[in-house]
């Protein structure tokens, strides 16, 4: 019996790294969405029209959310690629 400790260590390192990265990026995306939501709801009653600052904040927050969710979607895509043998 010989155990492949290197492979075991690799699995541990890769899994932990990928999990933490994906969840952290997703959390940043959620944070972006939340900021966009709160700017939209709190920004409206104060300014009747669309003040430039109130307009920009949700755009930046939405962009942050978009980039983060795209990155997560890419990770999911890679996961599907790994699962489906026909893609290899």
């Amino acid at each position: 019996m010989d155990l492949d400790w290197t492979a075991l260590g690799e699995v541990a390192a890769v899994s932990t790294g990928v999990t933490v990265a994906v969840v952290a990026v997703f959390a940043l995306g959620v944070l972006g969405l939340s900021r966009a939501d709160s700017t939209r709801t709190t920004g409206r009653p104060r300014t009747a029209g669309r003040a430039p600052t109130a307009g920009r904040a949700p755009t930046a927050a939405l962009a942050q959310a978009g980039v983060c969710f795209l990155a997560c979607a890419a990770a999911v895509g890679y996961g599907i690629y790994l699962i489906v043998p026909q893609f290899h």
């Binding site: 999990t19 933490v20 994906v22 969840v23 952290a24 959390a27 940043l28 959620v30 944070l31 939340s34």
Partner: peptide, 17 residues
């Protein structure tokens, strides 16, 4: 992995709605 990821997720979104 889940422990670290959960901890981070709550830290990052601590001030979100």
């Amino acid at each position: 992995a889940a422990l670290l990821a959960t901890y981070l997720a709550y830290r990052i979104t601590a001030r979100a709605r």
